[in-house]
Simulated assay, not measured.
Amino acid sequence: MKAAKRLVLLPTTTALAVGGSFTGSPAVAAAPLLTSNPTSSGGLMSASRRVLRLLTAMAVAVLLSVTGIGVAAPASATTVTASRTISVRSAGFYAGGVWDIYQSNAFLTVNLTQDGGGNLYGSAVQGDMVGTLLNGAVDGQNIYFTISWSNGAVGRYTGVRGADGRLSGTTFDLNNPVSQATWVTSRTF
């Protein structure tokens, strides 16, 4: 006669931790909770409760991963990862080079370089003042940069590339926000 095998719970437990995994991808996993052991106690009712708990834990893990919350699995478990869309800044145009800005209250020339990530670096000249770009970037059809001028002013420029390819926007002095102006380029990008 064959000996009957019973399903029993391993002495370890599975815990689901809410939080992002190292890669940023949600992971859903479950370690095997049941095993076949003819010498252990713990009948069929105990095994069915454990299966129900496992299914509940897996349903919660799937729900959390669908809503974008990562679920970390135990180290011994097999991991299945789902892909996640990550937004990456993309420069829609190249703003590098020497070009003029016509402000409603001044005229200046910028000399910019742009890296592959859309970040801007460079300098500017307005009359006898010189400026250094503190930061800046092209993001899609938008541009922004901040110029520190030799007279102490710090100009923040924001703009957009229009349908005609020209840049236009507004600027203000970070040290004196009341001092504002509009600006436009004659060059197309």
Rank of each mutant, 00 (worst) to 15 (best):
L55F: 04
L64M: 12
L44H: 11
A59K: 06
V28S: 09
T35N: 10
A59V: 00
V66F: 01
A73N: 00
A31H: 12
L52I: 03
V66R: 11
P32L: 11
S40I: 03
V60F: 03
T67R: 13
A57V: 03
A27Q: 15
L33T: 13
P38C: 02
A31V: 15
G24S: 08
V66K: 10
S40Q: 14
L55P: 01
P26T: 06
S48R: 13
A29D: 14
S65L: 00
L44Y: 10
L64S: 05
A57I: 00
R50A: 14
G43M: 00
S25F: 03
V66N: 02
A29K: 11
S46R: 10
T23R: 11
T39P: 01
P26E: 10
G43V: 04
T56N: 04
A59S: 12
L33M: 14
L64K: 06
L34C: 01
M58I: 05
G43F: 01
L63F: 07
V62Y: 07
L63T: 04
L54A: 12
L34D: 06
S65K: 01
A61P: 02
S36R: 11
T23D: 15
A73I: 01
L33N: 10
V62L: 12
G70D: 07
V62T: 12
R53Q: 14
T23N: 14
L63S: 07
A57Q: 15
A61F: 02
V51Y: 05
T56V: 06
N37S: 10
T23W: 11
T56S: 05
M45G: 11
S65V: 00
L54F: 03
M58F: 03
L63W: 03
